[in-house]
């Protein structure tokens, strides 16, 4: 079942001015419930715009956004409902921290939902543990944390709203490899436990290959490919042509197959290791 459905979306920034930009062109997209969907594309391809359309931060110039079976712009007054159903973690979310303590900051979303105190506390603890936050930091000021911890606190702030679909714009940007794996691994664990849907925007092909069930490729405001990671990465040359890349290990496999060692379709390091040990 589709949790998010975009139908014929067009989005134009600064319409009617000399700065007019057509950011999305006739985009149709279906995001299945319970899946991790990856959104990739070069800079300026409209990924972030797409993300902000799903929770109603931006209103499409044309077309419908259907979230959990409801057209979100049917009743513009109830747009906040869409924000709670589709939790968006923006790029560099650590800059949105503001409260006195990490706990208060995570509670900001649930409080806006009008939940009771007990439920808020319960959700805050749960979200913090999914995001991998140590209980000892909860009563500290968010401004005292390290970069990686700030990122996790911001992530927990959105997870605590328990959205039906969690949308992350470059969740691992600027983190070191260890932090990357922890944040993304935590998301995967969260998705398996809660069963909610996740959309991840990323530039990293490795992350896409490792964590996503389905991949959507965008360029120039249009969706050009959708499919499972193996379907997408099989189109090696098309991706390169779009100015994108494939996982490094896939490149290695392709080079090996040119030299006569065929590993088949390889896009994660783990799978490559398995295949190679078979050959040895």
């Amino acid at each position: 079942m589709a949790i998010v459905e975009l139908r014929g979306i067009n989005f134009i920034y600064n319409k009617g001015t000399p700065y007019e930009t057509h950011a999305l062109k006739d985009v149709d997209l279906c995001v299945n419930e319970g899946e991790i969907t990856g959104l990739i594309g070069p800079t300026g391809s409209g990924k972030s715009t797409l993300v902000q359309l799903i929770n109603g931060i931006l209103k499409p110039t044309d077309g419908d956004v259907i979230l959990d079976g409801v057209n979100i712009w049917e009743q513009p007054k109830k747009i906040r409902e869409a924000r709670f159903k589709a939790g968006v973690v923006m790029q560099y979310p650590e800059y949105q921290l503001f409260a006195d303590t990490v706990r208060d900051d995570i509670a900001f979303g649930p409080k806006n939902m009008g939940l009771g105190e007990e439920e808020i506390n319960e959700r805050v603890e749960k979200a913090a543990s999914f995001a991998g936050l140590d209980p000892s930091v909860m009563s500290r000021s968010p401004f005292d944390l390290s970069g990686g911890q700030k990122r996790r606190a911001a992530l927990a702030g959105v997870i605590a709203m328990e959205p039906k679909v969690l949308i992350l714009d470059e969740p691992a940007a600027g983190l070191d490899p260890g932090g990357r794996a922890e944040v993304l691994g935590g998301l995967k664990k969260y998705q398996r436990t809660v069963g909610s849907s996740i959309i991840i925007v990323s530039h990293s092909m490795e992350d896409m290959a490792n964590y996503c069930d389905r991949i959507v490729v965008m360029t120039d405001g249009k969706i050009v490919m959708t499919g499972t990671p193996s379907q997408i990465f099989a189109r090696y040359n098309d991706l390169i042509g779009l100015g994108l890349d494939v996982p490094r290990v896939t490149r290695v496999a392709a080079a090996l197959s040119r030299r006569g060692i065929d590993l088949g379709e390889v896009y994660t390091v783990g799978y490559a290791v398995e295949k190679l040990s078979e050959l040895l």
Partner: peptide, 15 residues
């Protein structure tokens, strides 16, 4: 920057 922060807080249901 203000716009970005506003959008982020709106995404958390700020009104």
């Amino acid at each position: 920057e203000t716009e970005k922060i506003m959008n982020a807080q709106k995404a958390r249901g700020a009104d």
